[in-house]
Simulated scan of single mutants.
Amino acid sequence: MERLEYRKLIKVLEQVAAAGQGDLYPVLAEALAVHLGWIDAFVAENPAYLAPGGGDDGEEQYLTRFRPDFVEEYVERWRWANPFASHDGVAHLTRHGVATLGRLRQGASGPERDFADMFLRRHGIDDMLKIVIRSPVTGAVSTLGVPFDGARRAIEPGDRLMAVTLAPLLSPYFGAAR
């Protein structure tokens, strides 16, 4: 990783470390947008597909700036067609801690391709980077999702490296009282 990339990473972490109780998500979203160009990043707390047992326990929560109708449509219609929730997606996220929609789409089922083509593209999302963050205190799993609009910004190799580096550094801030 280049020196400039480390500086960006440190700036994100400094802002997150300074966040007040309950302000983690808005501070993180702003820091990612300003320093990494990761606009509209969102957090899924306790994603059912990564939870032990993988069941739909109803505790999945979303911290996002997306419109409420987007989140509602996702939960009601697309949640289980999400390629990140597929067997391959879960295996990739569990093994590597990071996955991209572009990679998972290659082996996607019909409903999973529909998720990308009919749902995400309709909302201006061409690709997505998903990062697994595990709380060292509680063991809870969250994911950080970063949507990309290919016309404005595509996922680059440096984004994946940044994601792999960032995940363990963010983990102390998730699921723990500070």
Rank of each mutant, 00 (worst) to 15 (best):
G54T: 00
L36A: 14
E76S: 12
V16F: 06
T64H: 01
E5C: 08
V90W: 01
E72K: 13
F70M: 03
H35W: 08
R7G: 15
L32N: 04
R79Y: 03
W78F: 12
L13W: 07
L50S: 04
T64G: 02
A91Q: 11
D69E: 14
G37K: 01
T64S: 15
L63C: 06
L63I: 03
V43D: 00
E73G: 04
G97H: 07
Q61F: 04
G89W: 03
H87S: 15
G20R: 12
S86H: 09
T64I: 05
E14Q: 15
T94P: 01
D56N: 14
R7S: 12
H35Y: 15
G55V: 14
E5Y: 03
L63A: 11
Y49L: 05
E60W: 06
P83M: 07
A48Q: 10
A29D: 07
V27Q: 08
V43G: 00
A51Q: 10
T64F: 02
A41M: 08
A85E: 11
H87Y: 08
H35S: 07
D88F: 05
A48S: 14
D56R: 12
D23T: 13
G37W: 13
D69W: 06
P68A: 02
F84K: 01
G54Q: 08
Y49I: 00
Y49Q: 03
K8W: 00
D23K: 14
G102E: 11
A19K: 02
A85H: 10
A51R: 03
E59K: 15
D88V: 02
W78H: 05
E45M: 15
L24K: 01
S86C: 00
R67I: 07
L24G: 09
P83K: 09
V16Q: 10
Y74V: 10
V90P: 00
A33T: 14
D56K: 13
G89F: 04
W80A: 05
G89Q: 09
F70E: 08
S86P: 02
A18P: 00
L101I: 03
Y25A: 10
A48R: 04
L24C: 11
V75W: 03
N46S: 15
E59G: 08
F70H: 05
A51S: 14
D40P: 02
E60R: 03
G55M: 11
F70D: 04
H35L: 09
P26K: 10
V34R: 10
L50F: 05
F42E: 09
F66I: 06
V12P: 09
V16W: 06
V90T: 09
R7F: 11
I39G: 13
R67L: 12
G22F: 02
W80M: 00
G102N: 12
R65M: 10
F84N: 02
D56L: 15
D69Y: 05
L50Y: 05
K8T: 06
Q21W: 03
A48D: 12
V27I: 14
P47E: 06
E59L: 15
P52I: 01
R7I: 13
Y6D: 14
N46A: 14
A91E: 11
L24H: 00
Y62Q: 09
V27C: 07
R67E: 15
A18K: 07
R7Q: 14
L101N: 02
Y25E: 08
F42Q: 11
P47S: 05
L101T: 04
N82W: 02
R79D: 01
V27K: 08
A51W: 07
G20T: 03
A17N: 01
V75C: 04
